[in-house]
Amino acid sequence: MLLLALDTATPAVTVALHDGSAVIAESSDVDARRHGELLLPAVHRTLQAAGTELGAVTEIVVGAGPGPYTGLRVGLVTAATFGSALGVPVHGLCTLDGIAYAAGRAGLEGPFVVATDARRKEVYWARYDDARTRVTEPAVDHPADLAERVAGLPAVGAGALLYPAAFADVPPGMPEHQSAGALASLAAEKLARGEELPPPRPLYLRRPDAKVPANYKVVTPK
């Protein structure tokens, strides 16, 4: 197996290759404004570092968010197009699950919370019993509104770091953004167990901003 993992749902543009037993190459850039430019070169670098090429990939996993939409779609459409061109399956995993998995590997035991920056003074978040077990659906909320629900729990991710009033306990040495290496390891683990992974559907969690114009504005001066 050669699994290609990519995720653009957090400020990190992150790519990794996993051979079924370990991550063999990984490349990450943190630049929330340039996902579109950075992803393909990162894929190329990762393949080169592993001494292989895209045609050797047998499986793709992509972070499905939640994440700010414009960046999120870069990873999703790239994964879907690779999958179509190569004729290999494409899976989608919740981006927060990848961060939780990385937190587990950094030594955090459950229960805990993962929170990423959703902008507009909100966070994307979910609760975990342990690094592999998410116990709430991913959600988007104002940190103040969920302070009670996450009180007393350690929290990881850039969203937790941004709002210390709601997330008082952010253990040191924990991941801030997604790493495709963690996402790849999680996916490889699940695949090895024979789990069926979900399709790559975006987790937007918000409706598109669009207001129906009430009626056209009258232009005749009153």
Binding site: G36, L39, L40, V43, H44, L54, G55, Y69, T70, R73, V74, V77, T78, A79, A80, T81, F82, S84, A85, L86
Partner: peptide
Amino acid sequence: LAGALLVGVSAAKAYAYAL
């Protein structure tokens, strides 16, 4: 539209690279 263009550009890059 920036966000709309980005979907096509990302897909085209992936397709060209893969092929």
